[in-house]
Computed example of a mutant assay.
Amino acid sequence: MIYLDYAATTPMSEDAISMYVKAAKDAFGNSSSLHDIGGFASQTLDASRKLIASLIGGTYKGLFFTGSGSEANTLAIQSLLNGVDSSKKHIITTQIEHSSIFNYFKKLAKEGYDVTFLKPDKHGYIEKEQVDKALRADTCLVSIQHGNSELGIIQPLAEIGKLLKTKHVLFHSDCVQTFGKVPVNVDTLGLDAVSISSHKIHGPKGIGAAYVQPSVYWQPVIEGTTHESGFRPGTVDVPAVAAFAVAAKKITDSMSEQHHHFKELRKSLIQHLEPISSRITILNNDEHTILSNIFPVCVSDIEGQYIMLECNRYGFAISTGSACQVGMQEPSRSLLAIGYDEHKAKQYIRVSFGVETSESQILAFAETLIKTVNIFHQRDWRG
């Protein structure tokens, strides 16, 4: 099967697997134990922490390992909120956040917070002026994802970050989709907190990280927690952390090369799909910054789930949106937010590239999609 769903997850790289096995054998101790075996695990953990922190322009004191990107999101947000003035109850976010953040803010809204969900423009873009207009005297936190996994849009975090610094409002971003694809630097983007994940960059699943600027005051979600400086309870998975660090270093070192590769694949796919160009709508374009590895498309009059299943039958793995939403039988919240109705939103499919994706695979996929669309419309015409 040809895999074209890298935005959902990536296969572990050989380097990450090798490191995981080595660390599982040599650094199996509990990193909190005081004996030498625990000490070696602690040293491995610290080295990995320093490496990953450096890749986002941070310091090791601000990086905390979590069980996933989703957990990093909720822990970072709640830890920040625990540290702010309790009289400040206003939060700003967007309608197109990852479900882990969107649902958490819905929960906080029921618990007394006033949450503003900004609506993006027709491309999925959030303007700095929207954030500025929404700010209030009691705004304590703004959380805006860096890159949307369904639309592929990258938000202007640096502009928003500069604004929020002048207003002394905390700024968090879910960078799970962008880390390793585009530069993520906490200072350049003006961020107080960041969430990232391993399995999106060819590392193992079940490990993520949250970064909180050491200058920012926060309080633990669970009082009395000792692991990860009180940020998250539970023994740290040192082998997974070490593999995460190796994967992070490798992908950031080749970021420019991969970006070029993805741009060429995207250009090629658009060309190959020309025979059905009147039947498809590419959701993002060159008018705004995009993640070049994500190719979101709506196929006129055909539900995305049908396209996905047909492609699977022919040996191609694509998706109909965020893997965290699969099985809900609901149209994408991101597409609804940019103005699509439920019928049109259900016609969405997402193709996402990886470093292993080749030109020949793109050609083969395009031929399959064209055949699927043409056969469907022939059947539809015949009744």
Rank of each mutant, 00 (worst) to 15 (best):
6 Y>N: 07
9 T>Q: 11
13 S>F: 11
14 E>L: 13
19 M>H: 13
21 V>C: 15
22 K>P: 05
27 A>S: 15
29 G>T: 09
31 S>W: 02
41 A>W: 01
42 S>A: 14
43 Q>E: 13
44 T>C: 12
44 T>M: 08
44 T>S: 12
57 G>F: 03
57 G>D: 05
61 K>G: 10
65 F>M: 01
65 F>S: 03
79 S>P: 00
84 V>Y: 06
93 T>R: 00
94 T>C: 06
98 H>T: 07
99 S>E: 09
101 I>C: 06
101 I>E: 02
107 K>W: 15
109 A>V: 11
109 A>P: 04
112 G>I: 04
117 F>P: 00
132 D>I: 11
132 D>T: 14
137 A>T: 11
140 C>T: 11
142 V>K: 02
144 I>C: 05
146 H>F: 08
148 N>Y: 09
148 N>H: 12
157 L>W: 00
159 E>Y: 10
162 K>R: 15
163 L>Q: 06
175 C>V: 07
176 V>S: 06
177 Q>R: 06
182 V>S: 09
185 N>I: 05
186 V>Y: 01
188 T>Y: 12
188 T>G: 11
190 G>R: 03
195 S>C: 08
202 H>I: 05
203 G>Q: 01
205 K>Q: 14
207 I>N: 00
209 A>G: 03
211 Y>G: 00
212 V>R: 00
215 S>C: 14
216 V>E: 04
221 V>C: 08
222 I>V: 12
224 G>I: 07
225 T>Y: 08
227 H>D: 14
229 S>L: 14
231 F>G: 00
238 V>H: 04
240 A>P: 00
244 F>Y: 04
244 F>R: 00
252 T>E: 04
256 S>R: 14
258 Q>S: 10
258 Q>N: 09
264 E>M: 08
265 L>P: 00
266 R>G: 06
268 S>N: 10
268 S>T: 15
274 E>R: 09
280 I>E: 03
283 L>W: 03
284 N>I: 07
291 L>M: 14
298 C>P: 03
298 C>F: 01
300 S>A: 14
301 D>N: 15
304 G>L: 03
304 G>V: 02
305 Q>S: 10
308 M>P: 01
312 N>S: 10
316 F>S: 01
316 F>P: 02
317 A>T: 09
318 I>D: 02
319 S>L: 04
321 G>R: 00
324 C>V: 15
328 M>F: 10
329 Q>T: 14
333 R>Y: 05
339 G>Y: 07
341 D>E: 09
354 G>S: 12
379 R>P: 09
381 W>H: 08
